[in-house]
Design a protein around this nucleic acid. Structure first.
Lengths: 148, 148
DNA sequence: ATCAGTGCAAAGTATTTGCATATCC
DNA sequence: GGATATGCAAATACTTTGCACTGAT
């Protein structure tokens, strides 16, 4: 079952309606999965498909999708929230370059051992995680070694 | 050398002045290290010591401390930034309870292996990280098992 | 005397909310 | 038909900024 099918049945079974706007918003996120878009960016793209979708509707849909665990809200410290498909969330991490502000993804998890330890030691029932590494990306290291 | 000594010499050597306001703000953070305070909260406490410290000054000091790597800005998804001493940052993680919104700390790191792998594979020069686990804390699990 | 630092109020952003209207089942 | 969702504009919340003033060296 595809992500959108799962999302639609989640909406339905939770008593929410599958409206045009919600479909449009979800499709945009699916089409740009690797993008970490903000509400504003999603709204812009949504308006190209349907100029009548308001920003408030986008926010409300994103909130709903987050509640239904379709999306995950991310924060990269630039003052706005960014969103990512829930599915992608659990098995990768983000590398944030403090020089160019770029965000890269790491497609490995490797936190199982740590999670197990935490679940036992702290009796904390883990449902998800978010790991960010700050540093200097390869490109910026090269740019710097040329200049300085 | 204590944290505040390091902070003051960092300020000085970077050409910034050690003002009353900056001292007050830093002291408050040192006295409440485990608290993850927001700018507003720091401002409130600062005002009890010196009623003339403005909120803008607090924001400016926090920004400066962040730049000097005295503090780290955190985001727990409640719409405001929270701050923590840089020293504490590198060797612990946060457990965020999605039921009671409590934030707990885990005093282990265990990310060295993962960091090494990422540094090599992605040629990303890591300087810090931030790891949040979402889930249900022990207390909420108990509360729930009583009720449901 | 100079220049960084500050307080205040105003501006700027991101997000949320109230309400009348439109839409879906 | 009745509840749910939407659009718009206004409200809110957090943070930043402009500017005149203060304070330290």
């Amino acid at each position: 079952m595809g992500i959108s099918q799962r999302a639609y049945s989640l909406l339905e079974s939770s008593g929410y309606k599958i409206t045009n706007q919600r479909q449009t918003i979800l499709e945009i996120i699916l089409k740009n999965r690797q993008q970490h878009m903000s509400a504003e960016e999603i709204h812009e793209k949504a308006n190209k498909i349907n100029p009548d979708i308001g920003l408030a509707t986008v926010y409300r849909a994103l909130e709903l999708f987050e509640e239904l665990k379709i999306l995950h809200k991310l924060n990269f410290g630039d003052g706005r929230s960014r969103y990512e498909l829930w599915e992608e969330e659990h098995h990768h991490h983000h590398l944030i370059c403090t020089s160019c502000d770029g965000v890269y993804e790491v497609a490995e998890d490797l936190l199982e051992v740590l999670e197990d330890r935490i679940e036992h030691k702290y009796k904390f029932n883990i449902s998800g995680h978010q790991l960010k590494f700050y540093g200097i990306c390869h490109q910026c290291q090269e740019d710097c070694s040329n200049e300085c």
